[in-house]
């Protein structure tokens, strides 16, 4: 995937492998391929949703993009410049522009700090304020932005509910006035009645300040609510990227299609047979050869077990990583194998 005009972030062929040590000498005996060749881009002001099941590498991808961990391979381009190997002062300056909100507001806030000192500390680290007065005003400003009030500044995290704590975590991420926010499962630990408050807050902040989001979740319904485009991740790779509506209405990759139809719909008048994929996700230590989805794919053919499919643009801005580009749900695997529909098979680019 090439960078486009208007992209704030472009990631090219990003890899993050964790070595597995074993034996007495602690030699590397294998690699856990958490992120295994991801390419994506996020436009200014848009939300790119990243959805995928537990362990598929979402958090590792986020941490690598934010340079909290070093990529094994690949490139990160932010606002036109290659930031993959930035360090020191330049990295610090970059960090101001990219922030992250984690899933668990309980773990990510220091219990011994008042909300105010939690916010002003970040200002100090980045040298954003010159006086105490200034920092206090800034803190008041921030806390109002996220829908709390200045009285809350003197309290400690344990005095807040989960939703309020997540608002504080958002406020802290906004301290440096970033233009890019990674939201890693920001509502997964919250009650549904409170989740909507946070999703609405994030949307209104985006509208007001033109923020760009990378929104990570395993919850497809949440992703659909907030993102303009959606990337579907499986075992360390993006298997499909498209406009969100396309992902839900015309999923093209068999994994996306299974994922979308596995989600129960909160409407008892529309009960359907939940599509269940057989088996479990393979381990990222032992990625199947060929297409990595072939062990669970209902349409897998001999070719899928042998050759890795390329990432191809099957329609404008709609990318999939699959050997076939056909209307899967109506297809039978035997048809594929008999070559009856070879028209759907693409020549590799």
């Amino acid at each position: 995937m090439k960078g486009r005009d208007g992209d704030l972030l472009t990631v090219q062929d990003l890899h993050k492998w964790f070595p597995i040590k074993g034996g007495l000498l602690g030699k590397t005996v294998g690699q856990l391929r958490a992120v295994d060749g991801v390419s994506l881009s996020v436009m200014k002001g848009e939300t790119l949703g990243v959805v995928g099941e537990s362990g598929c590498g979402k958090t590792t991808l986020a941490k690598t993009i934010l340079k909290l961990i070093k990529p094994t391979k690949g490139k990160i381009i932010f606002d036109g410049s290659d930031v993959t190997d930035l360090s020191g002062r330049k990295a610090m300056r970059l960090r101001r522009r990219m922030q992250i909100v984690f899933q668990d507001p309980y773990a990510s806030l220091d219990p011994r700090q008042t909300v105010r000192s939690c916010l002003t500390e970040v200002m100090g680290v980045h040298g954003l304020v010159t006086s105490r007065r200034e920092s206090e005003e800034a803190a008041e400003n921030l806390i109002e932005k996220v829908g709390l009030n200045p009285d809350h500044l003197l309290r400690f995290p344990h005095e807040f509910s989960g939703g309020q704590r997540q608002r504080i975590a958002v406020a802290r991420a906004l301290v440096t006035n970033p233009d890019f926010l990674v939201l890693d499962e920001p509502t997964s630990s919250l009650d549904v009645s409170v989740q909507a408050q946070i999703l609405n807050l994030l949307k209104s902040l985006q509208r007001e300040f033109g923020l760009t989001y990378l929104f990570i979740s395993h919850n497809l319904a949440v992703i659909r609510q907030v993102s303009h485009r959606t990337a579907v991740m499986y075992l360390g790779r993006m298997v499909e990227i498209a406009e969100t509506e396309k992902i839900y209405s015309e999923p093209k990759h068999p994994y996306t299609s299974a994922l979308v139809s596995a989600v129960p719909i909160p409407d008892p008048s529309r009960r359907t047979e939940l599509a269940a994929l057989e088996g479990d996700v393979p381990s990222p230590v032992n990625i199947p050869p060929g297409c990595r989805f072939n062990t669970r794919c209902p349409y897998a053919t001999e070719k899928c077990r042998r050759e890795t499919p390329p990432l191809v643009e099957i329609a404008p801005s709609h990318w999939i990583e699959c050997h076939y580009d056909i209307d899967f749900p109506s297809m039978k695997r035997s048809d594929l194998e008999r070559g009856l529909i070879s028209g759907g098979e693409r020549a590799p680019e």
């Binding site: 509910s161 989960g162 409170v194 909507a196 408050q197 999703l199 659909r224 719909i265």
Partner: peptide
Amino acid sequence: KGLLEAIPRPDSRSELKSIAGSV
């Protein structure tokens, strides 16, 4: 009623309403 309006639906994108306050 509030809960049903607050749950995001995988089949639609309508604006979520939230229930004020917390549990």
